[in-house]
Amino acid sequence: MRKLGCIILFFVWAVLGLFAQEIRTVKYEQMAEIIDQKGDKLTIVNFWATWCIPCIEEIPHFVAVFNQYKAQTNLEMIFVSLDRATHLKEVAEFIKTNKMPGEALLLDDAKRFNEWIPKVHPDWEGNLPATGFYRKGELMEFHANMLTEEELIHIIDKLK
């Protein structure tokens, strides 16, 4: 009986542990470093938020296309939430419910919007959703609008 209790506890711990690992709160520099570390792999970085309706509509496109293409094209996916850090739990919940693959970050750098938004792309006004395509830390393509599955596939095919 005690053994069973231990096993259940272990599972709860493992699931919670995984869950906690699913999202990291970062500043801009840490985010840039994480993107750099993906090296040669084509890395899709999607900026989103739970309050952003078009982002929520767009996320299933990323989930579907990433799951379909990751094996053959050596893809990486990073979801960067711009929700408030105090909403971390809701964001983690959303990621889990929607089975969002890849890495998840919460970019908690609101006071420096005006510093880091132009560093991501000089023409980005901060409107969400927005998506960058990186390789070796270099931004290859940037879209500050919603992307369809077809558009995503087209961009991946072009950059892979």
């Binding site: 919007f113 938004i117 901060g126 409107n127 969400l128 959703p129």
Partner: peptide, 9 residues
């Protein structure tokens, strides 16, 4: 000029 995160129109 400044930029900030906000909702798309």
């Amino acid at each position: 000029k400044t930029v900030a995160i906000g909702c798309d129109i």
